[in-house]
Design a protein around this nucleic acid. Structure first.
Lengths: 338, 338
DNA sequence: GAATTCGATGTAACCGAATACATGTATTCG
DNA sequence: CGAATACATGTATTCGGTTACATCGAATTC
């Protein structure tokens, strides 16, 4: 099917040398094997003339490395992960690696498939945002390979896994406390996700700690659950509207849902923030597009992606061995929705 | 570095057969080579026991196929391309292919790098949204390989290139005509991109045709240029604001810039659509988030992605040979900004 | 001047699968 | 009953590189 691309053998023939000599010229970094300037020139000329390109599959087979790392994010349509992915790609590019990006869409099956791909394709390293894989399953995965493994967002305690995390619990605690104090709200609601999903539990805990410390109580009527998406936020707001009963403020677990909440509340004639204040989490680009602009907790996806990738390549290239656990900062961004 | 994964040879040894027999059991579901049920069972048991996984590099080297297609889009942070990418991935998944996604960010250098990767990694097929590559360069690329090549968005006339396109010229023409007629605007501005970038010229032509046919003239003061991004839209609006002179309507070449325009105009106290009506193109998710919601021309990225991928796999698997040129529909979505 | 070293290159083995071809046994047919 | 034919499997080769090792003339050492 494919036109046969020129191989090293073709180059060698044209340059009048043996095939390994071509290999040596092209991977010149190893000074241990000297090559005469004249040969080098002839080889390079032949490479140029034929438009030779190395065959990555062949090289990978021999060297057992693919110059590729795999990145699994939770949702490619979420601006947060896009920026993170791009940061990872930028770092990888500097190291001459490609990145295979996968989106799990929060589905177990996709995370499993991802692991499968990593093994079959011999990825050299993994960065992932695990959602449904248990620590046990990740351990099982790690037993089949020795590649570096970096993870975002959970306090995972495994000697082989490097972690970058944001302290959500504290972030939401502080933001909620600020919100309560500022607005002297009497009742605050929460739109979360099932506690089994990584950020779900920590953020819920931060929220409830702030609420109870302020002497308020968690009102079950205002504890809602969604699925991270805009639609999920809309549905959550819809149930409030149907009940006709509102808290004076809502802390939403991520921006996309927070925006959905705002849009739906407004459609029902409820004013934000006057009737209901809304706070998000992530600071995605859309947060500055909604009106009122979204008050939220900013994470820095570029910084996170960079930390993740840098950890990975530290192991990959400098043979780092000490386990790393890095915290990435957050910051309360006060806009107009709360 | 990596723990040696079990190979076919290991499986063979455990099952007491030869390596090719394992290969036959695993991928020769075609009946041409018969295998006894007993052997098959023993092999499968061994595969299971060892957790054997095929080595993709080795297979690729031998078969000259990688079960991977490459997708180059213009901008991963644009919701339109995200949806398109996902549609492509879905189709690919059904055919048991992986997708290597790359974002050119409209840069020539990234498009070149993409082509390089395609050749080195032996991708089986390519889908791309070319921005800066000339038809001549694409032809040169195609001479080095025989893989199927599908492109979005330009009327490219090359026997080896399948095309999916949206008739932007007509779309903008109709939308602009509708706008003029409805709002009885006296002056209409345009925020485009440099004409050298694919959608730039066609959309500009559609716009100017509508304007002149309506008996209006193109006012150079209101012909602006951006770079597809939110920031680009903001800058365009900013120059208008600095001049203090506004058209009564603006046709913007894509939604992201249109949203930037709206936000910046509003900040300067200009009302949309009352003072200036704004119309976009794409119908990205954010179009329903801005207020006023964006009136725009919808393209269907899922449909486009599906058409692209389907064309590709038609060639890849069914050995299709006739060149395909497919049109994908557009639709005027009337919301509140115009 | 013989021995040793070094510089430059060739030879051969290997990575893990796929596949053309060879082999040997059981089955069928004339 | 011998030859042809399935059937089931093994042997050898190949894909395109990398790398350990061998070679061999020239330079250096003693």
């Amino acid at each position: 099917m494919r036109i046969k691309l020129p191989t090293m053998y073709d180059v060698a023939k044209l340059a009048g040398v043996s095939q390994p000599t071509v290999s040596r010229v092209l991977n010149r970094n190893d000074t241990s094997v000297p090559i005469s300037d004249e040969t080098r020139a002839r080889v390079l000329a032949a490479v140029e003339q034929l438009g030779y390109r190395p065959n990555v599959a062949a090289r990978s087979l021999r060297t057992q490395r693919t110059q590729t790392v795999a990145l699994l994010i939770a949702d490619l349509s979420n601006g947060f992960y896009q920026l993170l992915a791009r940061a990872v790609q930028d770092v990888a590019r500097k190291h001459d690696y490609e990145v295979l990006i996968s989106s799990s869409d929060h589905l177990y099956e996709n995370e499993k498939h991802f692991c499968e791909i990593v093994l079959r394709r011999g990825m050299d390293g993994v960065i992932m945002v695990p959602q449904r894989l248990s620590i046990h399953e990740m351990d099982h995965f790690l037993q089949q390979t020795q590649i570096p493994f970096v993870v975002l967002g959970r306090h995972i305690d495994h000697p082989r896994i490097d972690v970058v995390y944001v302290d959500d619990e504290r972030a939401i605690y502080e933001a909620t406390s600020w919100l309560i104090q500022k607005g002297s709200h009497s009742s605050i609601g929460f739109v979360g996700v099932p506690a089994s999903l990584p950020p779900g539990l920590g953020r819920l805990q931060g929220f409830s700690r702030a609420v109870t410390e302020a002497g308020l109580t968690l009102d079950p009527r205002f504890m809602l659950e969604g699925d991270f998406t805009l639609e999920g936020g809309k549905r959550a707001a819809q149930t409030l509207i149907e009940r006709g009963d509102f808290p004076s403020a809502l802390v939403v677990i991520n921006d996309l849902m927070a925006i959905g909440v705002i849009l739906t509340l407004q459609e029902a004639g409820i004013r934000v923030p006057d009737d209901v204040a809304v706070m998000g989490f992530d600071d995605i680009p859309e947060a500055t597009i909604v009106r009122p602009a979204l008050t939220t907790i900013a994470q820095d996806p570029r910084e996170i992606g960079q930390k993740l990738a840098t950890s990975l390549f530290a192991r990959l290239e400098s043979g780092q061995s000490a386990r790393r656990v890095l915290e990435s900062p957050y910051k309360l961004i006060i806009r107009d929705s709360a």
